[in-house]
Protein backbone atom coordinates (compact mmCIF):
# COMPACT_ATOMS: atom_id res chain seq x y z
CA UNK A 1 0.00 0.00 0.00
CA UNK A 2 2.64 2.52 1.06
CA UNK A 3 4.86 1.40 -1.78
CA UNK A 4 2.03 1.88 -4.23
CA UNK A 5 1.33 5.38 -2.94
CA UNK A 6 4.95 6.39 -3.24
CA UNK A 7 5.21 4.97 -6.74
CA UNK A 8 1.98 6.63 -7.77
CA UNK A 9 3.14 9.99 -6.41
CA UNK A 10 6.59 9.68 -7.96
CA UNK A 11 5.09 8.79 -11.31
CA UNK A 12 2.96 11.94 -11.33
CA UNK A 13 6.15 14.02 -11.60
CA UNK A 14 7.42 12.73 -14.97
CA UNK A 15 3.91 12.79 -16.44
CA UNK A 16 3.48 16.41 -15.40
CA UNK A 17 6.91 17.25 -16.82
CA UNK A 18 5.94 15.55 -20.08
CA UNK A 19 2.71 17.53 -20.18
CA UNK A 20 4.57 20.79 -19.53
CA UNK A 21 7.09 20.00 -22.26
CA UNK A 22 4.43 19.03 -24.79
CA UNK A 23 2.38 22.15 -24.09
CA UNK A 24 5.44 24.43 -24.24
CA UNK A 25 6.61 23.12 -27.59
CA UNK A 26 3.09 23.08 -29.02
CA UNK A 27 2.64 26.73 -28.13
CA UNK A 28 6.04 27.64 -29.56
CA UNK A 29 5.32 25.86 -32.81
CA UNK A 30 2.54 28.33 -33.56
CA UNK A 31 3.10 29.90 -36.95
CA UNK A 32 1.98 33.39 -35.85
CA UNK A 33 4.28 35.86 -34.09
CA UNK A 34 3.11 36.98 -30.62
CA UNK A 35 4.67 40.39 -31.29
CA UNK A 36 2.17 40.86 -34.14
CA UNK A 37 -0.65 40.18 -31.71
CA UNK A 38 0.63 42.77 -29.25
CA UNK A 39 1.73 45.57 -31.54
CA UNK A 40 -0.22 44.91 -34.72
CA UNK A 41 1.44 43.99 -37.99
CA UNK A 42 2.31 47.55 -38.98
CA UNK A 43 4.49 48.37 -35.95
CA UNK A 44 7.97 49.81 -36.50
CA UNK A 45 10.81 47.29 -36.65
CA UNK A 46 12.68 48.99 -33.81
CA UNK A 47 9.65 48.73 -31.49
CA UNK A 48 9.19 45.09 -32.38
CA UNK A 49 12.83 44.29 -31.68
CA UNK A 50 12.69 46.17 -28.37
CA UNK A 51 9.59 44.31 -27.22
CA UNK A 52 11.00 41.00 -28.39
CA UNK A 53 14.12 41.59 -26.31
CA UNK A 54 12.08 42.79 -23.32
CA UNK A 55 10.02 39.59 -23.39
CA UNK A 56 13.14 37.45 -23.97
CA UNK A 57 11.56 36.06 -27.12
CA UNK A 58 14.88 36.36 -28.95
CA UNK A 59 16.54 33.80 -26.67
CA UNK A 60 17.19 30.29 -28.02
CA UNK A 61 14.22 27.96 -27.51
CA UNK A 62 16.14 25.83 -24.99
CA UNK A 63 16.74 28.90 -22.79
CA UNK A 64 13.08 29.87 -23.05
CA UNK A 65 12.10 26.32 -22.11
CA UNK A 66 14.39 26.36 -19.07
CA UNK A 67 13.00 29.71 -17.98
CA UNK A 68 9.46 28.41 -18.47
CA UNK A 69 10.09 25.35 -16.26
CA UNK A 70 11.78 27.45 -13.60
CA UNK A 71 8.80 29.80 -13.66
CA UNK A 72 6.26 26.99 -13.31
CA UNK A 73 8.08 25.61 -10.28
CA UNK A 74 7.78 29.05 -8.67
CA UNK A 75 4.12 29.40 -9.64
CA UNK A 76 4.92 31.91 -12.37
CA UNK A 77 3.16 31.16 -15.63
CA UNK A 78 4.19 34.36 -17.39
CA UNK A 79 2.06 37.34 -18.27
CA UNK A 80 -1.01 37.55 -20.44
CA UNK A 81 -0.23 39.26 -23.76
CA UNK A 82 -3.52 41.10 -23.90
CA UNK A 83 -3.91 42.32 -20.31
CA UNK A 84 -0.30 42.16 -19.08
CA UNK A 85 -1.57 40.57 -15.86
CA UNK A 86 0.10 37.46 -14.45
CA UNK A 87 -1.38 34.30 -16.01
CA UNK A 88 -1.38 32.42 -12.71
CA UNK A 89 -3.57 35.09 -11.10
CA UNK A 90 -6.02 35.13 -14.01
CA UNK A 91 -6.33 31.36 -13.97
CA UNK A 92 -6.84 31.25 -10.20
CA UNK A 93 -9.49 33.96 -10.33
CA UNK A 94 -11.55 31.84 -12.75
CA UNK A 95 -10.99 28.59 -10.90
CA UNK A 96 -13.84 28.81 -8.34
CA UNK A 97 -16.50 29.29 -11.05
CA UNK A 98 -15.40 26.16 -12.92
CA UNK A 99 -15.12 24.18 -9.70
CA UNK A 100 -18.64 25.23 -8.71
CA UNK A 101 -20.02 24.25 -12.10
CA UNK A 102 -18.21 20.91 -12.13
CA UNK A 103 -19.33 19.96 -8.62
CA UNK A 104 -22.94 20.95 -9.37
CA UNK A 105 -22.88 18.93 -12.61
CA UNK A 106 -21.41 15.95 -10.79
CA UNK A 107 -24.13 16.11 -8.13
CA UNK A 108 -26.87 16.36 -10.75
CA UNK A 109 -25.47 13.43 -12.69
CA UNK A 110 -25.26 11.28 -9.55
CA UNK A 111 -28.78 12.29 -8.52
CA UNK A 112 -30.06 11.10 -11.89
CA UNK A 113 -27.79 8.11 -12.40
CA UNK A 114 -27.93 6.35 -9.03
CA UNK A 115 -31.74 5.97 -8.76
CA UNK A 116 -32.12 5.10 -12.45
CA UNK A 117 -29.19 2.71 -12.36
CA UNK A 118 -30.52 0.95 -9.25
CA UNK A 119 -34.00 0.78 -10.75
CA UNK A 120 -32.62 -0.72 -13.97
CA UNK A 121 -30.46 -3.28 -12.20
CA UNK A 122 -33.13 -4.45 -9.76
CA UNK A 123 -35.78 -4.81 -12.45
CA UNK A 124 -33.91 -6.06 -15.53
CA UNK A 125 -35.93 -6.05 -18.76
CA UNK A 126 -38.73 -4.03 -17.19
CA UNK A 127 -40.06 -0.82 -18.73
CA UNK A 128 -37.95 1.16 -16.27
CA UNK A 129 -34.86 -0.75 -17.37
CA UNK A 130 -35.46 -0.22 -21.07
CA UNK A 131 -36.29 3.42 -20.44
CA UNK A 132 -33.09 3.90 -18.48
CA UNK A 133 -31.06 2.28 -21.23
CA UNK A 134 -32.64 4.42 -23.93
CA UNK A 135 -32.09 7.52 -21.83
CA UNK A 136 -28.44 6.60 -21.40
CA UNK A 137 -27.95 5.94 -25.13
CA UNK A 138 -29.56 9.30 -25.84
CA UNK A 139 -27.46 11.06 -23.20
CA UNK A 140 -24.20 9.55 -24.40
CA UNK A 141 -24.89 10.54 -28.01
CA UNK A 142 -26.32 13.99 -27.40
CA UNK A 143 -23.98 16.93 -28.00
CA UNK A 144 -23.88 19.39 -25.07
CA UNK A 145 -23.72 22.36 -27.42
CA UNK A 146 -27.15 21.30 -28.67
CA UNK A 147 -28.76 20.58 -25.30
CA UNK A 148 -27.53 23.85 -23.78
CA UNK A 149 -29.15 26.22 -26.31
CA UNK A 150 -32.37 24.18 -26.27
CA UNK A 151 -32.56 24.43 -22.46
CA UNK A 152 -31.98 28.18 -22.76
CA UNK A 153 -34.75 28.40 -25.34
CA UNK A 154 -37.22 26.54 -23.15
CA UNK A 155 -36.42 27.70 -19.61
CA UNK A 156 -35.02 31.17 -20.22
CA UNK A 157 -36.53 32.57 -23.40
CA UNK A 158 -39.96 30.88 -23.49
CA UNK A 159 -40.75 30.25 -19.83
CA UNK A 160 -38.52 32.98 -18.42
CA UNK A 161 -37.76 30.92 -15.30
CA UNK A 162 -33.98 31.00 -15.33
CA UNK A 163 -31.34 33.47 -16.50
CA UNK A 164 -29.90 33.02 -20.00
CA UNK A 165 -26.28 33.40 -19.00
CA UNK A 166 -23.80 34.77 -16.51
CA UNK A 167 -23.05 33.80 -12.94
CA UNK A 168 -25.45 35.53 -10.59
CA UNK A 169 -26.62 33.31 -7.79
CA UNK A 170 -27.84 29.76 -7.71
CA UNK A 171 -30.51 30.20 -10.42
CA UNK A 172 -27.88 30.88 -13.06
CA UNK A 173 -26.07 27.68 -12.09
CA UNK A 174 -28.99 25.35 -12.82
CA UNK A 175 -28.96 25.29 -16.63
CA UNK A 176 -25.19 25.02 -17.13
CA UNK A 177 -24.97 22.29 -14.49
CA UNK A 178 -27.87 20.41 -16.07
CA UNK A 179 -26.29 20.68 -19.53
CA UNK A 180 -23.00 19.35 -18.26
CA UNK A 181 -24.47 16.79 -15.87
CA UNK A 182 -26.98 15.05 -18.16
CA UNK A 183 -24.38 13.61 -20.51
CA UNK A 184 -22.35 12.34 -17.60
CA UNK A 185 -25.37 10.79 -15.91
CA UNK A 186 -25.94 8.71 -19.05
CA UNK A 187 -22.57 7.04 -18.63
CA UNK A 188 -23.00 6.60 -14.89
CA UNK A 189 -26.41 4.93 -15.30
CA UNK A 190 -24.84 2.20 -17.41
CA UNK A 191 -22.05 1.71 -14.93
CA UNK A 192 -24.27 1.66 -11.86
CA UNK A 193 -26.54 -0.85 -13.57
CA UNK A 194 -23.84 -3.23 -14.77
CA UNK A 195 -21.86 -3.00 -11.56
CA UNK A 196 -24.91 -3.61 -9.38
CA UNK A 197 -26.08 -6.52 -11.54
CA UNK A 198 -22.70 -8.13 -11.08
CA UNK A 199 -22.75 -7.67 -7.31
CA UNK A 200 -26.33 -8.92 -6.93
CA UNK A 201 -25.20 -12.33 -8.15
CA UNK A 202 -22.57 -12.70 -5.46
CA UNK A 203 -23.03 -15.04 -2.54
CA UNK A 204 -23.05 -12.42 0.17
CA UNK A 205 -26.21 -10.99 -1.37
CA UNK A 206 -27.75 -14.44 -1.24
CA UNK A 207 -26.74 -14.66 2.42
CA UNK A 208 -28.23 -11.27 3.17
CA UNK A 209 -31.47 -12.32 1.54
CA UNK A 210 -31.44 -15.68 3.30
CA UNK A 211 -31.10 -13.86 6.61
CA UNK A 212 -34.47 -12.37 5.79
CA UNK A 213 -33.30 -8.80 5.36
CA UNK A 214 -35.74 -6.58 3.54
CA UNK A 215 -34.84 -6.22 -0.15
CA UNK A 216 -34.35 -2.50 0.28
CA UNK A 217 -31.66 -3.07 2.87
CA UNK A 218 -30.02 -5.83 0.82
CA UNK A 219 -29.67 -3.50 -2.13
CA UNK A 220 -28.81 -0.23 -0.46
CA UNK A 221 -26.61 -1.48 2.38
CA UNK A 222 -25.04 -4.62 1.01
CA UNK A 223 -25.01 -4.56 -2.76
CA UNK A 224 -24.78 -0.89 -3.62
CA UNK A 225 -21.79 -0.16 -1.41
CA UNK A 226 -19.80 -2.80 -3.22
CA UNK A 227 -21.14 -1.83 -6.61
CA UNK A 228 -19.99 1.76 -6.21
CA UNK A 229 -16.31 0.90 -5.96
CA UNK A 230 -15.69 0.38 -9.68
CA UNK A 231 -17.72 3.52 -10.27
CA UNK A 232 -15.02 5.50 -8.51
CA UNK A 233 -12.36 4.79 -11.15
CA UNK A 234 -14.65 5.72 -13.99
CA UNK A 235 -15.60 8.87 -12.13
CA UNK A 236 -11.95 9.89 -12.34
CA UNK A 237 -11.96 9.58 -16.11
CA UNK A 238 -15.29 11.35 -16.26
CA UNK A 239 -13.84 14.31 -14.39
CA UNK A 240 -11.76 14.81 -17.53
CA UNK A 241 -14.87 14.90 -19.67
CA UNK A 242 -16.42 17.26 -17.14
CA UNK A 243 -13.45 19.63 -17.33
CA UNK A 244 -13.39 19.80 -21.13
CA UNK A 245 -17.17 19.76 -21.25
CA UNK A 246 -17.04 22.89 -19.13
CA UNK A 247 -15.16 24.62 -21.96
CA UNK A 248 -18.20 24.22 -24.22
CA UNK A 249 -20.80 24.72 -21.49
CA UNK A 250 -19.12 27.86 -20.17
CA UNK A 251 -18.99 29.24 -23.71
CA UNK A 252 -22.73 28.63 -24.18
CA UNK A 253 -23.75 30.17 -20.88
CA UNK A 254 -21.05 32.88 -20.64
CA UNK A 255 -20.03 31.26 -17.36
CA UNK A 256 -16.92 33.09 -16.17
CA UNK A 257 -14.77 30.02 -15.55
CA UNK A 258 -11.54 28.49 -16.75
CA UNK A 259 -13.13 27.01 -19.88
CA UNK A 260 -14.39 30.33 -21.14
CA UNK A 261 -11.04 31.91 -20.31
CA UNK A 262 -9.36 29.23 -22.45
CA UNK A 263 -11.55 30.03 -25.46
CA UNK A 264 -11.13 33.77 -24.96
CA UNK A 265 -7.36 33.30 -24.78
CA UNK A 266 -7.41 31.22 -27.97
CA UNK A 267 -9.51 33.82 -29.76
CA UNK A 268 -7.22 36.70 -28.79
CA UNK A 269 -4.15 34.55 -29.53
CA UNK A 270 -2.92 35.15 -25.99
CA UNK A 271 -0.53 32.20 -25.98
CA UNK A 272 0.88 32.42 -22.45
CA UNK A 273 -2.70 32.46 -21.20
CA UNK A 274 -3.69 29.50 -23.42
CA UNK A 275 -0.68 27.64 -22.05
CA UNK A 276 -1.63 28.49 -18.46
CA UNK A 277 -5.23 27.38 -18.94
CA UNK A 278 -4.27 24.05 -20.50
CA UNK A 279 -1.80 23.40 -17.70
CA UNK A 280 -4.32 24.30 -15.00
CA UNK A 281 -7.00 22.00 -16.46
CA UNK A 282 -4.57 19.12 -16.97
CA UNK A 283 -3.04 19.49 -13.52
CA UNK A 284 -6.51 19.42 -11.96
CA UNK A 285 -7.34 16.28 -13.86
CA UNK A 286 -4.12 14.53 -12.75
CA UNK A 287 -4.65 15.61 -9.15
CA UNK A 288 -8.27 14.40 -9.04
CA UNK A 289 -7.24 11.03 -10.44
CA UNK A 290 -4.45 10.75 -7.91
CA UNK A 291 -6.94 11.42 -5.13
CA UNK A 292 -9.36 8.88 -6.57
CA UNK A 293 -6.65 6.24 -6.61
CA UNK A 294 -6.01 6.95 -2.96
CA UNK A 295 -9.74 6.88 -2.16
CA UNK A 296 -9.99 3.60 -3.99
CA UNK A 297 -7.61 1.87 -1.63
CA UNK A 298 -9.49 3.34 1.32
CA UNK A 299 -12.88 2.29 -0.05
CA UNK A 300 -11.81 -1.25 -0.83
CA UNK A 301 -9.05 -2.63 1.39
CA UNK A 302 -8.90 -5.72 -0.81
CA UNK A 303 -7.44 -3.69 -3.65
CA UNK A 304 -3.81 -4.60 -4.01
CA UNK A 305 -1.54 -2.68 -6.31
CA UNK A 306 1.55 -4.34 -7.66
Amino acid sequence: MARFLIRRLLWSGPVLLGVLTLVFFLIHLIPGDPIDVMLGERAADADRAALRAALHLDDPISVQYGRFLAGVVQGDLGRSLSTQRPVAGLVLSRYPATLQLAVAALLISLLIALPLGILSATRPRSIADTGGLLFSLFGISMPTFWLGPLLILLFSLKLDWLPVSGRHGIASLILPALTLGLGMSAILIRLTRSSLLEVLRREFVLVARAKGLPERRVILRHALRNALIPLLTVLGLQIGALLTGSIITETIFSWPGLGRLTIQAIQSRDYPLVQGCILAITATYLLVNLMIDLLYTAADPRVQYE
Binding site: G18, G240, A241, L243, G245
Partner: peptide, 15 residues
Protein backbone atom coordinates in the same frame (compact mmCIF):
# COMPACT_ATOMS: atom_id res chain seq x y z
CA UNK B 1 0.62 8.19 -20.47
CA UNK B 2 1.54 11.78 -21.26
CA UNK B 3 -1.10 11.98 -24.01
CA UNK B 4 -3.66 10.41 -21.69
CA UNK B 5 -2.90 13.01 -19.05
CA UNK B 6 -4.82 15.56 -21.10
CA UNK B 7 -8.46 15.34 -20.08
CA UNK B 8 -11.19 14.74 -22.68
CA UNK B 9 -10.81 16.71 -25.87
CA UNK B 10 -8.46 19.32 -24.39
CA UNK B 11 -5.51 18.21 -26.52
CA UNK B 12 -7.63 18.46 -29.68
CA UNK B 13 -8.81 21.93 -28.65
CA UNK B 14 -5.25 23.04 -27.99
CA UNK B 15 -3.94 21.61 -31.26
Amino acid sequence: DIFLAFPGILLAIAL
